[in-house]
Design a protein around this nucleic acid. Sequence first.
DNA 1: GGCTAAGCGAGACGGTACGTCGTGTCTTAGA
DNA 2: TCTAAGACACGACGTACCGTCTCGCTTAGCC
Lengths: 195, 195, 195, 195
Amino acid sequence: MTSATGQRGRPRSEASRQAILAATRDLLLEGDYDALTTAEIAKQAGVGRQTVYRWWGSKAAVVADCVVEGLVAFPLETPAATGDPAVDLRVWLELSHERLAAPSTAPLVRALTAAATTDAQATERMAELFAPVREAMRSSLAAGIDAGSIRAGTHPDAVVDLLVGSLIYAVVSRDASARDRVQPALDVVLAGIRL
Amino acid sequence: MTSATGQRGRPRSEASRQAILAATRDLLLEGDYDALTTAEIAKQAGVGRQTVYRWWGSKAAVVADCVVEGLVAFPLETPAATGDPAVDLRVWLELSHERLAAPSTAPLVRALTAAATTDAQATERMAELFAPVREAMRSSLAAGIDAGSIRAGTHPDAVVDLLVGSLIYAVVSRDASARDRVQPALDVVLAGIRL
Amino acid sequence: MTSATGQRGRPRSEASRQAILAATRDLLLEGDYDALTTAEIAKQAGVGRQTVYRWWGSKAAVVADCVVEGLVAFPLETPAATGDPAVDLRVWLELSHERLAAPSTAPLVRALTAAATTDAQATERMAELFAPVREAMRSSLAAGIDAGSIRAGTHPDAVVDLLVGSLIYAVVSRDASARDRVQPALDVVLAGIRL
Amino acid sequence: MTSATGQRGRPRSEASRQAILAATRDLLLEGDYDALTTAEIAKQAGVGRQTVYRWWGSKAAVVADCVVEGLVAFPLETPAATGDPAVDLRVWLELSHERLAAPSTAPLVRALTAAATTDAQATERMAELFAPVREAMRSSLAAGIDAGSIRAGTHPDAVVDLLVGSLIYAVVSRDASARDRVQPALDVVLAGIRL
DNA sequence: GGCTAAGCGAGACGGTACGTCGTGTCTTAGA
DNA sequence: TCTAAGACACGACGTACCGTCTCGCTTAGCC
């Protein structure tokens, strides 16, 4: 009996897949999202151009996957739930801002944002990316409410919207001075959710 | 005495300029930022393709100008300074969100965002766009502090970052549910700045 | 043993090449050399515009190739070497003039001439085109000299210059009356080379 | 006193007209016919671009006029009629070839030829250019026939076709070796028309 | 070991948009 | 009303990318 599920032919090269994602990341560090080309990706990855399309089907999809894969070590940490949300948020936001706005990652964020404006798949990936943050925020705030430090009824996703939104806005707008407004902004939010 | 420095040659056609911006707006309402082409803009505007490049130099620049010009009636109102910042902010944010997320304007916002990730000129325009908002926020909060309703030391730009960031993030991510989080988010911010 | 130097990648499409040359010929029959556009060539050939540039690099080069290729059945016969150069030349010139000046080929000749004034590659092609004529003329005259009918020392290329030059001049200048001067001109040349 | 028939407004500037022709000539000495642009002509002539079109209407027309005007001293001499056509032709052809093929004038000849392939006006100008040559040839040959040195019935225009054709062909094809074939070619023609 | 099948690097294919350039017309201010 | 200047609508140019296709070759599972 012939195997039912056994794939025939040469198996896909995981090495090629990794190389493509790595090349995409490297190229995004050098240029804009739309200065990125599949030809360059393929060349830098030492891969045929068709191989890119075999796996992803579009430039935006590669970028989105590239970010999500963790291959780029996308530095959006999830807040811890230490019981004190004030600490959780401060640690998380500080870290996230530092990393997202870093010269080596800001281009990736901008690329993902650009991809998300056009490509539905990229938009979804972006949402997936923040899902764990939303979840962690829920836990952290719940712990805070239990501990009596956070006002009951605080909407965790609203807090995420505010902080993540301002984060991305700062990166996209390339506003260097936004760095100095992270603390004040967080202060406002913390004051707003404190009991 | 007649001007010695009078401009020579045929003057720039204001009609063409308007037509180009209007065509850009109309086309963005129909499709994505990168489905937009200079050829289509020129054709729809009844203008030569060179005329676009003569004055803007790139698609991104046209889009940015298109938004900023007010020709598109960009619906980002500036907060009033009624003396009660809580009212100012609520009115402004409600209005802004409603308009930015409207089907007829969301594509423009996404296009501007996409343009800003690539084009420095567009990025700058984006900043210009929010400058009046920042200024009005300063006035409003100052009035609130004077009236004793707002905590002294509140950083107006941090508040703008939070609210504008979350606004844009909602529009770019096409997250319909974000609409329901506008009120909770604002509640957090208002609670955070209240004395 | 398999070839080590086997070509890689998709091979060039001979069909496209033929289609481009055929389209060029057809379009030249309808209009002037500079009414010809690469876009029209590509469209009529059912080919991408880049494919034209991949192989030729310019309109002039395509035209030159088109003529030389024989795809256009360029009707410049080579003189035979019957032993009687008078007959050889008369037959050849009569035939050549008839064909070059024909409504279906004159535009091609004019186009090649126009191309040659600008494009070095086209100029070279033009020379290649007449190389066999020069060679045949050499044989024919040599046979005539052996047979004692032609003056020794007659310069074959000079004869070609005279006849080919007047041929092309007639076609380029669109001088219909030039047709009637072919015989008299040939009579002069024949009388000039006869022993 | 105001003229009755006098044209109104500023009279046309003959200086501008001359400057345009001179600029055209100078530019053609530097580059190909289709590297020539009206903008460059106007700039070099210190003239508005419209002024070119007011007088000529097209680039080809300017080139043709430029040649015919004698402004460029198009060096196609007319054969003298000394009574000995052999001398007449040799002097004329030698001089004409030397001048037409000179580095400073060959581009003009190529330009005129290129213009003639497309522009009817230029074609006609080209014919006009050779009309005096044809006329002089008629006189010279008639004198030769009278003197008994030339065969009666020799067709003057056929002779012109042969010599002018080979001249232009040599220039267009940029064939340097053609220089060495002028004498042999003329020898053939002279032998062909001698009684 | 031979066969079949799929992935591989390479690169040409048909398309489409780009940004530049040139043409011929039109519109200013000034002579 | 002609001039120089220069913007205008139009459209061809040559380049760059896209996503697909077609080569010869490689790498696997199955007979």
